[in-house]
Design a protein around this nucleic acid. Structure first.
Lengths: 228, 228
DNA sequence: TCAGTTATTATGTGCAGACATATTAGCGTC
DNA sequence: GACGCTAATATGTCTGCACATAATAACTGA
């Protein structure tokens, strides 16, 4: 007899995976399960809620709880700060600020940030190193209007770390893709032009204004991994 | 005054983002917050627990709850079945089975599945089409010992969809990377050799045996996106 | 027959209280 | 001061109950 909401969750998961409750089937009500497991309904609720959150179950009032047609649909992945990511591999992190200018960003960047096309932004290019070797090239456009003045010396502290500590964040999105290395990216990362790079593109907004757009070009061999 | 655990969560999030509770700071106890918000401790607990799950807060017994040093660290992403993914774009999904043989997989595949090197597996290559155009190339090795017999006609039903409906799943992992198109991949996807492809690699295990290893090579332009 | 209303029902949320558990802080001893 | 024990404390979980809410089912009347 399972006891505790985690064991109940495990038991339900087993019944789903062994097809005792096959995909699409309606499972017993919380009340019935509480009776079977000899616990309070709130405990069953907790277990089922967690399973619904990961996409294993679909719940609707009155209709009841059913096993999702296509189980295993959501994965959570960590988005570490680069320094932590490098440190997690047991390597030493360092970075070099390659470029810092102020200017009007490409239309694509302004559009993604929902900024007027002519707004001048701070442009930073930073090369991050792991054990002295190129690891990822960071290309960032930063909205000075969204950041408290004065700005720090970005060759001393990485923009990402300064921003999370000093700028109010409201929403954002993140996208992953694969792109061929441009001439400048190839040079910075010491790879062949056109090499397949793993790209992370992130956009963040504050409560009032866009904060930053950043594109991370990872060196070939990079893998983003998570457990299901 | 916030009421309901969602509003409390929002209020706490605001205090974090406005730096009233800056990164690293310890926030009041559940009891104190329950008093402030005039609700039960369980309600505060629910709100704080959810925030901890997304990485905004770090909680320890006795030590209390503190704002994470580097907020925004976890994102959840959906892993749809290819047919749903295509349909979500309003396109028509179809697929062609390019290859079906039985043989010993490459060492790298056997190793990732933790299988003895000489185990023969079913090898499937499938090209998925969106509105008739190449969308993703699926390269799959399937352990027949982990699947119920008889196997279906994989030119009629896609392996993924058949597997989630008929095979008991226990654990798995997923990884994303960027790789240049091999000669055969380039031909199948109608792209230039060496083009940057977005690769999804998935490994799944049943309770007793490895089930399948699959590598999805997405056509250039593919983006995997999620909100933060 | 069908649209509109009402009743039913399963989940969603909330409360107060209780006990469990991990972790820290304090204390005493050597 | 370094150690090991004990007490204090914040979170983790559970219970039993209540009411809210959404979605379905049943009913009603034209």
């Amino acid at each position: 007899m399972p006891q505790g909401w985690e064991e109940i969750r495990a038991e339900v998961l087993t019944r789903i995976r062994t097809r005792r409750w096959p995909p699409g089937a309606v499972i017993p009500t919380e009340e019935a399960l509480a009776l079977e497991f000899d616990c309070a309904r709130a405990t069953v609720n907790r277990a089922l809620r967690e399973l619904a959150q990961t996409g294993m179950l679909e719940r609707k009032r009155k209709a009841g709880t059913r096993v999702a047609m296509l189980p295993v649909r959501k994965a959570t992945l960590d988005i570490p700060v680069i320094r932590q990511e490098v440190a997690a591999h047991g390597q030493v992190h360092a970075f070099r600020l390659l470029l810092q200018t102020t200017g009007v960003p490409p239309i694509a960047v302004a559009a993604r940030l929902q900024l007027a096309a002519a707004t001048p932004l701070l442009h930073l290019q930073t090369l991050h190193l792991a054990d002295g070797r190129a690891y990822v090239l960071e290309d960032r456009w930063l909205n000075p209007a969204a950041a408290p003045q004065p700005l720090p010396d970005f060759s001393e502290i990485s923009a990402n770390e300064w921003l999370v500590a000093h700028v109010t964040f409201a929403t954002g999105d993140i996208a992953f893709s694969a792109e061929p290395a441009s001439t400048s990216e190839a040079a910075a990362l010491s790879v062949a032009e056109g090499a397949a790079l793993f790209i992370t593109e992130r956009c963040t907004w504050g409560p009032d204004a866009p904060i930053t757009w950043v594109r991370l070009a990872h060196v070939p061999g990079y893998r983003l991994q998570t457990r299901l």
